[in-house]
């Protein structure tokens, strides 16, 4: 189980997250939501030890991740950063094979297990046909699937994804989200993702964490979290929340901004954290 304990994160300037303690339920899909600059991507990067905490810790199964050797951690927790770029000419198969890095040693460069993991990662993501194409020659959705396949080949129980659907068109967004849902349902992997679209969060996530200015405003199931008052507090928007006609999960329809005060501070937050 992945959790944070009074985690404080930040770059050179003021802290972006301050004394944050949250728990990410195992075996579920968790969505991190919030306005630009609220610290959701920073939190994800912190969870994946891409940023060193200033204070507190990220705790995986009772151990501080900073104390787990990075390669060992890479066999338990995979991260797909936002908008990764593959070197020119690298094929999908070669990319996915790189996911096996944490399992390899100089005397164990390509075991049968490695081969099997790559094959099944390609199959699950439906990339077998495209395996010998260059990654930079694929469409956006295919490329994202290739990167997810690489993360899958890593065979970790926990997968973190930073905005896996940005820059994708609608069909590809749905494709990627369904793939993640399938991974979770079939092999019980814990998935934590940063998403922008609230309706993606409600439809595909079991657990939603809403952040604003580095503070958790609400956490729980989509039904509990996505309410008009929360949307007002977190995003500064007036919105109607109705049950989805098919699945019954909450569906958010924004109508406008609330009174000026919250939006101003939001803007300030966004500017401040970008510096």
């Amino acid at each position: 189980m992945l959790a944070t304990d009074t985690l404080t994160l930040g770059y050179d300037g003021p802290n972006i997250l301050d004394q944050l303690s949250i728990t990410l339920p195992a075996g579920q899909i968790t969505a991190l939501i919030g306005p630009n600059g609220c610290g959701k991507s920073t939190l994800l990067r912190g969870l994946a030890r891409l940023i060193k905490p200033k204070h507190g810790a990220v705790v995986l199964d009772g151990h501080d991740v900073q104390r787990i050797p990075t390669r060992q951690l890479a066999t338990q927790l995979g991260i797909l950063p936002q908008n990764p770029v593959a070197p020119e000419g690298l094929t999908v198969r070669e990319l996915v094979a790189q996911g096996r890095y944490p399992h390899q040693r100089w005397f164990q460069q390509w075991s049968a297990a490695d081969e099997q993991a790559v094959r099944s990662a390609l199959e699950i993501t439906n990339m077998v046909e495209l395996a010998d194409r260059a990654v930079d020659a694929l469409s956006g959705g295919q490329r994202q699937r290739a990167w997810i396949a690489m993360t899958l080949a890593q065979e970790t129980d926990i997968i973190l994804l930073d905005e896996p659907t940005t820059f994708l068109d609608l069909a590809h967004q749905v494709e990627v989200l369904q793939l993640l849902e399938q991974l979770n349902r079939q092999s019980g992997r814990t998935i934590v993702m940063v998403v922008h679209d609230l309706n993606h969060a409600t439809r595909h996530a079991d657990h939603v964490i809403a952040l604003r200015a580095g503070v958790v405003q609400a956490a729980g199931s989509p039904r509990e979290v996505i309410t008009p008052s929360l949307l007002r507090a977190v995003f500064g928007i007036e919105a109607e929340v109705i049950p989805d006609p098919r699945s019954g999960v909450p569906l958010c329809i924004p109508y406008g901004l609330c009174a000026a005060e919250p939006t101003d501070t939001l803007y300030a937050d966004a500017v401040g954290s970008r510096a």
Binding site: A48, P69, Y101
Partner: peptide, 23 residues
């Protein structure tokens, strides 16, 4: 030559390499 595999990972970008367990 022994560093070649690490270079492969580094070539995917710093974040990806870190995520793959490269120091």
């Amino acid at each position: 030559w022994f560093q070649a595999r690490q270079l492969n990972s580094l070539h995917l970008g710093e974040d990806v390499a870190l995520g793959l367990g490269v120091s």
